[in-house]
């Protein structure tokens, strides 16, 4: 299967793939642009006769929805900061220092990632309850941070290891201390990986549902993911167009950030995952 027929077959297969991946999103967009009456018209109104932005306006002008979005941003960025700040020094140590039990410890940290957050949430719920921290954003940020640390250590230690030691040794020969070398040479070279790890954490945290669902009781502290689930449970057929619009608003930031930084992120991911 070579040449032009092969190309045609490739495109035909990829068209099916595109249909599968684009279909649900296209349907969501279609519903979000409809008037309540058009929602009942099924596929005939796939391209609505009178597309309307009213659903988006209604969702975005809802003060509670703005609060959910802001909570989502706050928790995602806070958790990503905790994860990156804790993981970066650890990753550097794994990449550059020789110490007993290094390999074992790195594996242990990776193994942590295999444990579902559900397992730890059961005791954590009790602790936070006893400490009066249920409904506290700080508690959720700490848990997000912990969930993000293993993958971040993994990605960053691979990134630090890729930096040529010669560059650091040259700086040392020039009379710089280790700390100066780290700040002047290593960190700038690792900056793209640090940024990628941070952004990846933000995107993953944006999608977190279970942790805030369990730990945040009151409506005003929910992030967007929890709010969407509650909203979906309370909608009827007559408000589906609003649910579709809310859903799109919830997922667009994550998709936009991800696509904008796609190269950076996939390089960081595959560079870490496919070493060797």
């Amino acid at each position: 299967m070579t040449g032009r027929w092969g190309d045609i077959a490739t495109y035909a297969a990829l068209a099916l793939v595109a249909l599968f991946f684009l279909g649900p999103l296209a349907w969501l967009v279609s519903l979000a642009l409809r008037t309540p009456a058009e929602v009942y018209q099924g596929a005939a109104a796939f391209i609505p006769a009178h597309p309307t932005g009213a659903n988006f306006v209604q969702i975005l002008s809802d003060a509670a929805f703005g609060q959910y979005l802001w909570n989502g941003v706050k928790l995602s960025v806070g958790g990503a900061s905790v994860a990156t700040l804790c993981a970066a020094p650890a990753a550097w140590a794994f990449a550059r220092l020789d110490f007993a039990g290094r390999a074992g410890l790195l594996w242990a940290i990776l193994a942590v990632q295999m444990i579902s957050p559900l397992v730890i949430l059961i005791p954590l719920y009790r602790y936070f309850d006893a400490l009066g921290l249920l409904d506290s954003h700080a508690a959720v940020i700490a848990v997000y941070g912990a969930i993000g640390i293993p993958l971040t250590v993994w990605l960053l230690s691979a990134a630090f290891a890729r930096i040529p030691r010669e560059l650091e040794e040259a700086a040392r020969l020039d009379g710089h201390s280790r700390l100066e070398t780290l700040v002047l040479i290593t960190l700038p070279l690792a900056a793209p990986a640090l940024a990628a790890a941070f952004v990846l954490n933000v995107v993953m945290n944006w999608g977190q549902f279970l942790v805030p669902f369990v730990l945040l009781g009151s409506e005003k502290s929910w992030p967007i993911s929890v709010a969407i689930y509650r909203f979906a449970g309370s909608t009827s057929a007559s408000t589906t167009q609003l649910l579709a619009a809310a859903c799109l608003i919830a997922l667009l930031p994550a998709i936009a950030v991800f696509l904008a930084l796609q190269k950076l992120l996939t390089r960081a991911l595959t560079g870490g995952a496919l070493k060797g």
Binding site: F21, P24, L25, L28, V203, W206, G207, Q208, F209, S225, V226, I228, Y229, A232, L243, C247, A250, L251, A254, I255, F258, L259, Q262, T266
Partner: peptide, 14 residues
């Protein structure tokens, strides 16, 4: 990749 970053809960709702 876009489908991948859709939050799991939104995936279920969609």
């Amino acid at each position: 990749l876009a489908a991948w970053v859709v939050p799991g809960i939104a995936n279920g709702v969609i």
